[in-house]
Simulated assay, not measured.
Amino acid sequence: MTNLDEELIELRREIHRRPELAGEERETAGLVAQQLREAGLEVTTGVGGHGVIAVLDGSADGPTVAYRADMDAVDAQTNVLPFALSDRVFDEGFASRVPGVAHLCGHDLHTAIGVGLARTLAQDSASVRGRLVFVFQPSEENLQGARAMLETGLVQGLAPREFYSLHCGPFPAGTIAVSPGYGLPGLDHFRIALPDGDEATAAALAAEVAKLGTVEFPKSVAEYHARFQTVIDPETAASMREFVCVAQWTEQTPDGRPVPNVLLRLWPQERYLELRAQVEQLAAAVGGHIELTGDPFPAMVNSAELTTAAGRYLSRALGPESVAWAEASWPFNCEDFALFLNEAPGAQFYLGVANAEVGMNGAPHTPDFAADERAIAHGVRAMTGLLIDRLAAR
Rank of each mutant, 00 (worst) to 15 (best):
residue 77 Q to V: 13
residue 42 E to P: 03
residue 358 V to E: 12
residue 224 Y to E: 04
residue 168 C to A: 13
residue 229 Q to N: 14
residue 233 D to A: 06
residue 237 A to R: 12
residue 16 H to F: 05
residue 234 P to L: 01
residue 291 E to C: 00
residue 371 A to D: 02
residue 313 Y to V: 08
residue 22 A to H: 09
residue 77 Q to W: 14
residue 322 S to T: 12
residue 1 M to V: 13
residue 226 A to V: 10
residue 182 Y to N: 15
residue 162 E to V: 09
residue 126 A to C: 08
residue 230 T to G: 09
residue 100 G to I: 13
residue 225 H to R: 14
residue 273 L to R: 15
residue 393 A to Q: 15
residue 385 G to T: 11
residue 38 E to P: 04
residue 249 W to N: 12
residue 73 A to P: 02
residue 105 C to E: 08
residue 99 P to N: 02
residue 248 Q to D: 11
residue 59 S to L: 03
residue 71 M to E: 08
residue 14 E to H: 09
residue 107 H to Y: 10
residue 209 V to K: 05
residue 372 D to G: 03
residue 76 A to P: 06
residue 233 D to F: 05
residue 273 L to N: 12
residue 25 E to I: 11
residue 40 G to H: 07
residue 286 V to C: 13
residue 88 R to N: 13
residue 327 E to P: 00
residue 132 L to M: 11
residue 81 L to F: 00
residue 68 R to S: 05
residue 80 V to S: 07
residue 8 L to N: 03
residue 70 D to S: 05
residue 389 D to R: 11
residue 121 L to R: 05
residue 130 G to I: 04
residue 200 A to Y: 06
residue 179 S to D: 10
residue 37 R to D: 10
residue 23 G to H: 03
residue 342 N to D: 15
residue 45 T to G: 09
residue 168 C to D: 04
residue 134 F to T: 02
residue 60 A to E: 14
residue 95 A to D: 11
residue 281 Q to A: 15
residue 95 A to M: 11
residue 295 D to H: 15
residue 236 T to G: 02
residue 353 V to M: 03
residue 222 A to Y: 10
residue 98 V to C: 03
residue 100 G to C: 09
residue 177 A to K: 04
residue 326 A to Y: 03
residue 292 L to R: 15
residue 177 A to R: 01
residue 14 E to F: 03
residue 189 H to W: 13
residue 38 E to T: 12
residue 202 A to R: 08
residue 152 T to W: 03
residue 50 H to L: 11
residue 167 H to E: 05
residue 33 A to K: 00
residue 116 G to L: 01
residue 6 E to M: 14
residue 349 F to M: 13
residue 32 V to W: 04
residue 336 D to M: 02
residue 378 H to C: 08
residue 143 L to D: 11
residue 336 D to C: 07
residue 187 L to A: 11
residue 26 R to E: 15
residue 154 L to C: 04
residue 366 T to H: 08
residue 226 A to G: 14
residue 72 D to C: 00
residue 281 Q to C: 04
residue 19 P to T: 04
residue 58 G to F: 06
residue 281 Q to H: 14
residue 167 H to C: 05
residue 372 D to R: 01
residue 60 A to G: 08
residue 205 L to P: 00
residue 272 Y to G: 01
residue 44 T to M: 13
residue 220 S to F: 06
residue 278 Q to R: 14
residue 367 P to L: 10
residue 315 S to F: 07
residue 363 A to V: 06
residue 350 Y to P: 01
residue 326 A to V: 12
residue 315 S to Y: 05
residue 138 P to N: 03
residue 267 W to S: 07
residue 130 G to V: 08
residue 132 L to P: 11
residue 258 P to W: 12
residue 342 N to M: 15
residue 258 P to M: 10
residue 169 G to I: 06
residue 209 V to E: 02
residue 312 R to Y: 07
residue 199 E to S: 14
residue 217 F to S: 08
residue 322 S to I: 09
residue 53 I to M: 09
residue 107 H to R: 12
residue 69 A to K: 06
residue 147 R to H: 13
residue 149 M to D: 01
residue 248 Q to V: 03
residue 81 L to I: 00
residue 221 V to Y: 07
residue 230 T to V: 11
residue 241 R to T: 14
residue 306 L to R: 12
residue 202 A to E: 10
residue 22 A to N: 07
residue 189 H to Q: 14
residue 104 L to I: 07
residue 17 R to V: 02
residue 344 A to I: 08
residue 53 I to L: 13
residue 177 A to L: 08
residue 25 E to W: 05
residue 204 A to P: 01
